[in-house]
């Protein structure tokens, strides 16, 4: 029988447009910038093409999930910390923002940055005991955090208890709301992409690769993990703060399972470790989930099955696949 294998070759233009050489011609330049421009412009144009208010609202929600997915991907693939507790970040950020807004009457544009930073600090502090843990253990503990916080709020009747905090200010209008979250997603997307390529990002990857060697190099891994968790929690809390101002309400449903599971599904489907992938995944998954809203919890079934199928059969994800197709020729050759 004739045996064949798939041969992959880098496109010439990829090799030529490496580094500074991209400036040599428009062709190389556009090869590099086109995908980024398409993404950025696509996201910016989105609110205009949405048919009605409902779908414009969906755009905001998508962006918040994209932020969460970004935070999950950053922690999981650059630090090796798999966090199943995205809802915890949303909840902390949301409650802080809501309290600041209703108690002190601060405007959303003040509360959101404060909630982001304070929330990130709070999350890092609460997660600090778990930082030495790896793999399964960290996942398990983070899975329990949102549930436990929810129970504490119910039990002690904190912050309005099961009723939540009502009457949170909204954004001035829906355009501001959408472009604010869109700007945040783009900012954090390109921010984290830049971060992971700096020397600090390299240390993060080293912690994931081999923490013993990092210790032997005279660096405290807990310190670097704490920094990374702070950054990731910041993204989550930012999302939480935004969501509170979008829905004008903060309550224990901020700890809902959706916030933990959709970002993971988005990351897996979009392609883990690429940072763009999770954002893309969120833009695919969340609208579908909105379409399925009338089926109730069936949508959770849907995206857990999608998640499972992707992780088992196509674990590379859309983004990695797309990158490969973009950068390489593939052809079958005889062995």
């Amino acid at each position: 029988m004739e045996q064949r294998r798939k041969e992959r070759l880098d496109r010439g233009v990829k090799v030529r447009s490496d580094g500074l050489y991209a400036l040599m011609s428009w062709r190389e330049l556009s090869y590099l910038t086109l995908p980024r421009l398409v993404l950025i412009l696509g996201i910016i144009v989105l609110p205009f093409v949405m048919p009605n208010m409902y779908w414009q609202r969906v755009i905001s929600i998508v962006c918040i999930y994209a932020l969460l997915a970004l935070s999950f991907d950053f922690l999981a693939h650059f630090l090796g910390l798999v966090s199943l507790g995205g809802a915890f970040l949303i909840g902390v950020g949301g409650y802080i923002s809501a309290i600041l807004n209703t108690t002190f009457g601060l405007s959303p544009f003040v509360t959101i940055p404060i909630a982001t930073i304070v929330g990130a600090a709070v999350c890092t502090l609460l997660l600090f005991p778990c930082l030495p843990l790896r793999g399964v253990y960290f996942a398990i503990v983070t899975l329990m955090y949102p549930l436990a916080l929810k129970r504490v709020i119910e039990a002690l009747d904190l912050f309005g208890g099961t009723n939540g905090i009502l009457g949170v200010d909204s954004f001035p209008n829906s355009w501001v709301e959408q472009y604010f979250v869109i700007a945040m997603v783009l900012l954090f997307l390109f921010g984290t992409r830049r971060l992971v390529n700096t020397d600090l990002g390299l240390v993060f990857r080293a912690v994931k690769d081999n923490d013993q060697a990092v210790k032997a190099s005279g660096m405290s891994i807990t310190y670097y993990k704490a920094i990374a968790v702070f950054i990731a929690s910041g993204m989550g809390c930012l999302g939480g703060a935004c969501i509170v101002h979008i829905f004008m309400w903060s309550g224990i449903s901020l700890f809902a399972l959706d916030f933990s599971i959709i970002p993971i599904a988005a990351t897996v489907i979009g392609g883990g470790g690429t940072l763009v992938g999770p954002v893309l995944g969120a833009f695919i998954l969340v609208p579908i989930s909105e379409l399925l809203r009338e089926f109730g919890t069936l949508r959770i079934v849907f995206y857990s099955l999608a998640l499972m199928a992707f992780i088992v059969f196509r674990s590379e994800g859309i983004m990695v696949y797309g990158e490969r197709k973009y950068h390489q020729f593939e052809r079958w050759v005889k062995v």
Partner: peptide, 11 residues
């Protein structure tokens, strides 16, 4: 493993 089994459970 974690994600897949958690997804099955959720489904």
């Amino acid at each position: 493993e974690i994600i897949a089994s958690y997804a099955i459970g959720l489904a």
